[in-house]
């Protein structure tokens, strides 16, 4: 028997009221990624064939550095949330599922920090 009210159930609110956080964050990062990724691909297309100096100069432009950091955070947060759902769907051995999800989360944090560090390093010359 469940002690939760029907309304509480449909709202997806657990005792910690965090039922929809994962779903919502997946959507919010998706919305943020639409302009960020269009901007990124367009910029790279416009700079195709540019040399090392030109790329660094571009990355070091303050607006570009900030947008790249935002994009990095949104991409890895979104990817990590998405891969978690995929693993939850397909991995049915409990310890393996938890280990795989933990690995994805650690990797996402590590890769995001490596990217942000690189951007900041270039930006600060």
């Amino acid at each position: 028997m469940s002690l939760r009210s029907p309304l509480g159930k449909v709202r997806g609110l657990g005792s910690a009221k965090e039922g929809v956080i994962h779903w919502w964050a997946q959507r919010m990062t998706a919305v943020a990624l639409i302009p960020l990724l269009i901007w990124f691909v367009a910029s790279i297309a416009a700079m195709a064939g540019a040399d090392y100096g030109a790329f660094r100069e571009w990355i070091a432009t303050p607006v570009v550095s900030v947008l790249l950091v935002l994009m990095t955070i949104a991409v890895f947060h979104h990817a990590q949330l998405g891969l978690q759902v995929v693993l939850e769907d397909y991995v049915h051995t409990e310890w393996l599922k938890i280990a795989a999800i933990a690995l994805v989360k650690f990797a996402a944090i590590g890769l995001a920090i490596a990217s942000i560090f690189s951007i900041v390093k270039i930006a600060l010359g």
């Binding site: 991409v75 998405g82 890769l111 390093k121």
Partner: peptide, 27 residues
């Protein structure tokens, strides 16, 4: 495509690290 993008994003990270590392690595 979501999974492929997540894997492909590694290339983006390598690219940024290479740009921060030096001209040889970037090349």
């Amino acid at each position: 495509t979501g999974i492929a993008l997540a894997v492909g994003t590694l290339l983006l990270v390598f690219w940024l690290i290479a740009a921060a590392t030096g001209e040889r690595t970037f090349g």
